[in-house]
Structures are given as C-alpha cells and as structure tokens.
Design a protein around this nucleic acid. Structure first.
Length: 439
DNA sequence: ATATAAAACTGTTGCGAGCC
DNA sequence: GGCTCGCAACAGTTTTATAT
C-alpha cells in the first residue's frame, strides 16, 4: 500500500505541482513504514518498486558506459586545449571560455532510486543527476540513525528534507566551496524502520522540533508474524497480478515521459500547475475544516497538531499523484479523486494519532515479542512459569501481573503451550507452566 | 571521539503468606 | 510440615546518556 503510493508519487512528482488551499505544492510524498524485520517488508516493497527498478537498471548501465566515454572525451579535450595554448598563447583568453562551453556536458545520471541513502549522496546526485528521485530504503535506520547523525548533521538533514518536501531549493553547505542551492528538485521517499529504531527516531526531539515528522505519512501495521501461514495456492490471485502489471506498465510510461524542465537548465524541473476543480476544492476545504476542528484541545488530533495542520496539503498531494497517475495531461483534480485522497488521509491521520500520540496500543504485543525472544535466546529450560519470568526475566517484566499478561498473549499466539498439570521450572514444580515453542 | 556518571538489567537469595 | 507463590533486597554487570 505505502509502497504503491510511494512509487506512484515518485513517478509523477516531476510533472506537476498540485494546488492546495494555499498555493501550489509538489507531488512528492514521504512515507515511513514500521515493520519488524522478517515481516516481509522488503518483499512487499520489492513488488511495488520493481517497476521503477526495472526501468532504472538498463539506464544505469548505459550511463556507466556514457560516463566512461565522456571521461575519455574530456581528457582529449584537455589535451587539445593544452596544445592550442602552446600554439597560440594570445588567443587563449578568448578561446578558453568558448572551448569550455563546447565541451560536452557530463551525462546526466539516470539513477532514480537511492537505497543506501545518506544526505551527501542525495546532494551529489541532485547536483548532477536526475532531478526527480526516490529515497527508498529497507533500513531507514541507516539514514536516520547511521552516519553519525549528530547535532548539526541532524539539523541539516532534517531541514533539507523538510525544504525538499516543501519544494524549496535544496542547499548544500560544503567546506571549501560556496554554498550551492539547487532548485527544481523533487524527491519522494519511503523508509522502513524496525520498531525498536522507530521508537527512538520518532521521539527524537530534534526531528520533532524541525517538523520533519509532520511531513511523513506513517504506517505501522499490526504484526502478522505468527499468522502468515502459507496456503498451498498462495500465488497471488489473478486479479491482483493483473492489477500489478497494469501498475507496472503505467509506472514505466510515466518514467519514460520526460518531465518539463527549465529552458536553461535541463536539471531543473518546472512542474506545471495542476489546479483543483471546484468540486475538489470544496471537498478539500471541508476536509481542512473538519481536521482543524479536531485539533481543538481534547479532540482527536490535539496531540498531533503539526501533522494535522498539514493534512489538507497531504490530501491534495495524494489527489495530485492519483490524478497524474491516471492521466499525465490531466487539467485538474476531479472531485472524485479528491474525495478518495481524503479517505486515505483520514487513515493516515488516525495512524499518526496512534503513533505520535501515546505509544501504540500494540505495546503489549511488542513486549510479548521481546519476552519471547528472551525466552528463546536466554532462557535455558524448555518450560517457563509466571514466577520464573517475574523473578528472573527481563527487569521490566518482573512483576507477576505483567508477566502473566505477556504469557497470555504468547499463549494466544501459540508461542507457548500450556502444560496441563504443570512442570519443573527453576528446579521447582510450578502448577502453571508453559512449553516454549522454538520456531 | 572518549571518559565518566547514571540508569537499567541480571542472577541470586531469603522470607513470609496462604494452602493442603 | 511441605509446597507454591509474591515480593523485596543486593551485588555485580551492562547499557545509555552526557560532558568534555
């Protein structure tokens, strides 16, 4: 779901800026999905991003060849210039700048997807590369946590991402050279995080205060681990397959179509404005008002004002993506599309409320998972009792109540099997005991 | 980047309450 | 008394946060 929208956003962001209640904004969408490793998130993302990858791969290979040729050309040019310099010293001054211009431009890097994302990487790609890219990463932690994201680095990254989302210029500050601002760049992103990392990152003061999170659309699906039994006929049914292949071809089409760019600088996108139809505008306005009301103290979204106040804009972006995805040359956003977008946005609002507000309800589930892991790795006996957990388990579970609740959860999910009549635990007989499933 | 202080975690032990 | 169980305490270790 997230992956699909992310890919669509990536493919469409170069074409248009959509109208919102306050002017025009890019179609870029930022997604953040939280899933336990082993949740098949990479597989899932792989399917939706496959179209993009397929498209990208041959281009990248061709580009590498081009680049090689270009480097050779350049070397030769230098040589010839040198020769000329020696031959005619006087005319060098005039000629030099001219010959500079004649030099073939370095080929534009066609890379679209960045998975090993660092801010530096994004910058350099933007500097001489595709102006519309996607930051898709399985391990978003690498970006947010890795690369010694400390203090200034962090601030810089956060503000850069925020500005990029807003469609403002992307500036790079590099020691030893003048600050450089790149305009007309677009990026969509989809990061996936593991719950543990997500907790830290989501509560990070820095990112919070920068308003970075209010620009992301979150999803934290309930864990399916323990419920994903493979059925024999598990292959995606035909309808899903055909939908997927439609999606893929459309993504291909969009990527192949050149985006409108600035006359002087082919790397600078000039997305055309995509206005809202009257109906769409009305719907968006209604949505905005509704969300605004819900931000009052005590209402549902009071705790996530930052996110909620961007909801209308996000909805407009989604609607824009859907519109362009449907028809590259669409004139305006239809009312129907907008109402679909607001439905999606409603969902994201709820999700954000769940995640950013008070911790998710599934805290219990994750605790249970933690306990299970502890049991499997650090507990030497085959059986377990409430008392054993309360007495020797991880510190935070060392109360019988807590231990009991978690054990119940695990039993419900068949990770523990109750042993009738009890069993030996910790050298003692326990009336209530469970056997630990190893798989 | 490193050192230091603070907090969290672990593996034990022991005691008393309630029950048969 | 013999058996479970809840609870508290403790010392040693590991992890985390913070300042330099």
């Amino acid at each position: 779901m997230q992956s699909v929208l992310a890919s669509a956003s990536l493919a469409t962001q170069g074409f248009a800026d959509v109208q919102t209640l306050h002017g025009f904004v890019p179609l870029s969408l930022y997604f953040l999905t939280v899933a336990e490793s082993g949740e098949r998130k990479s597989t899932c993302d792989g399917i939706a991003a496959k179209a993009v990858r397929d498209f990208e791969e041959p281009l990248v290979r061709a580009h590498q060849k081009d680049l090689k040729a270009w480097r050779q050309d350049e070397a030769e040019n230098r040589k010839s210039r040198k020769k000329r310099k020696l031959a005619d010293w006087d005319s060098v001054v005039e000629n030099d700048s001219a010959s500079e211009d004649e030099m073939p431009e370095e080929p534009v890097s066609p890379s679209i997807l960045m998975s090993d994302v660092t801010l530096q990487g994004v910058l350099s790609l933007f500097e001489r590369g595709n102006p519309s890219i996607g930051l898709f990463s399985d391990e978003g932690g690498q970006f947010f946590g890795g690369y010694s994201m400390k203090a200034e680095n962090k601030t810089h990254a956060a503000t850069s991402l925020s500005k990029l989302w807003d469609g403002q210029g992307f500036s790079r500050v590099r020691s030893g050279s003048d600050p450089l601002t790149l305009y007309g760049r677009r990026a969509s992103s989809h990061f996936m995080l593991q719950p543990v990392i997500a907790q830290n990152i989501l509560s990070d003061r820095m990112f919070k205060s920068q308003g970075l999170w209010s620009r992301f659309l979150f999803a934290w699906p309930e864990s399916r681990i323990g419920q994903r039994i493979l059925e024999s006929g598990r292959a995606l049914d035909e309808r899903a397959m055909s939908a997927l292949s439609c999606f893929n071809t459309r993504i291909h089409q969009l990527l192949e179509t050149p985006c409108p760019t600035h006359a002087d600088d082919p790397l600078q996108l000039v997305p055309r404005p995509l206005p809202l139809s009257q109906g769409a505008h009305d719907i968006l306005l209604a949505f905005y008002n509704q969300v605004e009301l819900a931000q009052q103290d005590g209402q549902a979204f009071a705790q996530i004002r930052g996110f909620a106040s961007k909801a209308a804009e996000q909805a407009a972006r989604i609607a824009g993506v859907l519109t362009v995805f449907e028809n590259t040359n669409a004139r305006e956003v239809s009312a129907g599309t907008m109402s679909n977008a607001t439905v999606l946005m409603d969902w994201y609002l709820l999700e954000a409320a769940r995640l950013l507000d008070t911790g998710p309800v599934s805290q219990e589930l994750r605790d249970a998972q933690a306990l299970l892991e502890w049991l499997q790795t650090r507990w030497s006996e085959a059986n377990i009792s409430v008392r054993a957990v309360a007495n020797r388990g991880p510190n935070r579970f060392r109360t019988p109540d807590r231990a009991r609740v978690l054990i119940d959860v695990l039993e419900r999910h068949n990770w523990l099997a109750r042993l009738p009549g009890g069993a030996q635990v910790m050298g003692q007989h326990a009336n209530e005991a469970w056997e630990i499933s190893l798989s």
